[in-house]
């Protein structure tokens, strides 16, 4: 048993370890170690294509995570107030949304948006003087939208768990102490679920930052970091790619660890 388990872990982590290892290669090969150096990191960060892709990835991750956090929180709160049957249905749908493969989300978002643009663009063309009509197309906005949609499900799942664990009598106590519903939300509910929102935001950010499949379909001409990595691999793997991969990996790991710490710490204080 132990042997097989070790084998599984080796299988899972060996490729990642290789990437990290060769990112410190002093030579040009991604398979032959020629001495230790952090040169490729500097190289990657000075490559204008890399920095541009990084900027795009950052904008997309930040925007989609923010949108997902706000709307996911609202949806979770609304679900909390719903009756049993309807709530179960929505909960189930949200879990399904998380389990749907990225490629399906990518393709379906692409088709949905292309169809939508196909309807709207002629209308816009008719409304504006010739040649001045704005054209809706795939790009930053559609990518942010697609990521936000997916991340929202993550945020809702995290917050539903948190809200379910929250003592309802806290809200009643607040109302009993003369706080109107919105005052209760602002002073009690929001502070208590805030760690959940923050964790949801970080997970959403990580998801968007790492995502290749959905971005590949709906990013249009925009290049995110994963898309850049994919396209440069076709021209051959250099340790520069390894350095970028390692940086993305580290960013994700740090964010995920922070999210976990926040989620763990919150409920303990409440329970005490």
């Amino acid at each position: 048993m132990r042997f097989y388990a070790s084998l599984v872990y080796l299988f899972l982590y060996f490729p990642i370890a290789v990437i990290v290892f060769f990112s410190f290669n002093a030579g040009k090969s991604a398979t032959q170690m020629m001495g230790f150096s952090v040169g490729w990191y500097g190289h990657a960060l000075h490559n204008p294509f890399v920095t541009e892709a990084l900027r795009t990835s950052f904008i997309v991750a930040l925007s989609s995570a923010s949108i997902a956090s706000v709307f996911g929180t609202m949806a979770a709160l609304a679900l909390q107030g719903m009756k049993g049957r309807v709530r179960m249905l929505f909960d189930a749908l949200i879990y399904v949304a998380v389990m749907v493969p990225g490629i399906v989300i990518g393709i379906s978002t692409l088709i949905a948006l292309v169809t939508l643009f196909g309807w709207i663009n002629p209308v816009l063309a008719a409304l504006f003087p010739a040649g001045q009509a704005p054209q809706l197309a795939m790009g930053l906005v559609s990518l942010i939208g697609a990521h936000a949609l997916f991340s929202m499900a993550l945020v809702i799942i995290i917050l539903r768990a948190r809200l379910a664990g929250m003592d309802r009598s806290l809200m009643e106590a607040s109302a009993d102490l003369y706080a109107a519903p919105f005052a209760t939300f602002r002073q009690i509910t929001l502070p208590l679920i805030f760690p959940g929102i923050l964790a949801g935001f970080l997970l959403s950010f990580t998801f968007s930052f790492d995502d290749f499949i959905i971005a590949f379909f709906v990013a249009g001409s925009e290049t995110t970091l994963p898309i850049y990595v994919f396209s440069s691999i076709r021209r051959g793997v250099t340790p520069e790619i390894n350095a970028i991969g390692t940086m993305v990996l580290m960013t994700s790991l740090v964010l995920l660890v922070i999210a976990q710490v926040i989620l763990r710490r919150g409920p303990r204080q409440e329970a005490a």
Partner: peptide, 8 residues
Amino acid sequence: FQHYALFP
């Protein structure tokens, strides 16, 4: 409240 419902 029975379980006090103090704001944590």
